[in-house]
Simulated scan of single mutants.
Amino acid sequence: MEGSPRMINIIKFVNARRQVIFIPSKNRVKLPVLQYLAAKTEPERDYTEREVTALLSGWLSGPDPDVARRLLIDEGLLARTIDGARYWRRPFDENWSIH
């Protein structure tokens, strides 16, 4: 269908344990990898910075969880209060697949 987002297979960016081993720099592929990580958070749940970092640490094998957390904020997949005390997942359309 014309105009629909293409599914991106992120398999080459995860290991056998489905942990992200690399966050690409190209937005076309970076966004699906970040969406994959954001999908590990529960919708409608508030997290502390420490909880987000701990959760990401379990799903990352290589990338720094602090960097991943900032990228998730920058791409609008996670939101946070101005003081950084509370984080939550923002709605997004998933356009990634993993096989």
Rank of each mutant, 00 (worst) to 15 (best):
residue 43 P to N: 12
residue 86 R to K: 15
residue 68 A to E: 02
residue 17 R to D: 13
residue 31 L to H: 05
residue 58 G to T: 07
residue 47 Y to A: 03
residue 49 E to G: 11
residue 39 A to R: 12
residue 16 A to H: 11
residue 30 K to E: 11
residue 72 L to D: 02
residue 68 A to S: 07
residue 23 I to A: 04
residue 11 I to Q: 15
residue 8 I to N: 01
residue 9 N to M: 07
residue 41 T to C: 11
residue 51 E to R: 04
residue 10 I to W: 00
residue 30 K to N: 06
residue 81 T to F: 09
residue 64 D to Y: 08
residue 13 F to L: 03
residue 41 T to V: 11
residue 55 L to W: 05
residue 74 D to H: 11
residue 24 P to F: 08
residue 37 L to M: 08
residue 86 R to N: 10
residue 43 P to Q: 12
residue 7 M to G: 04
residue 34 L to S: 03
residue 70 R to P: 03
residue 51 E to D: 11
residue 42 E to S: 14
residue 78 L to S: 02
residue 29 V to I: 14
residue 21 I to W: 03
residue 87 Y to I: 03
residue 45 R to A: 10
residue 38 A to L: 05
residue 11 I to R: 15
residue 24 P to N: 07
residue 75 E to I: 03
residue 70 R to H: 09
residue 88 W to T: 05
residue 68 A to V: 00
residue 36 Y to Q: 03
residue 57 S to K: 07
residue 58 G to S: 10
residue 79 A to Q: 14
residue 56 L to G: 03
residue 12 K to S: 14
residue 11 I to W: 14
residue 76 G to C: 09
residue 68 A to P: 02
residue 47 Y to Q: 04
residue 49 E to V: 08
residue 10 I to K: 00
residue 50 R to D: 13
residue 86 R to G: 00
residue 54 A to I: 09
residue 48 T to S: 15
residue 68 A to Y: 02
residue 40 K to V: 02
residue 20 V to T: 01
residue 31 L to N: 03
residue 24 P to V: 06
residue 48 T to Q: 10
residue 88 W to K: 03
residue 64 D to A: 11
residue 70 R to T: 12
residue 18 R to T: 10
residue 15 N to E: 08
residue 22 F to Q: 13
residue 22 F to V: 07
residue 33 V to D: 00
residue 54 A to G: 04
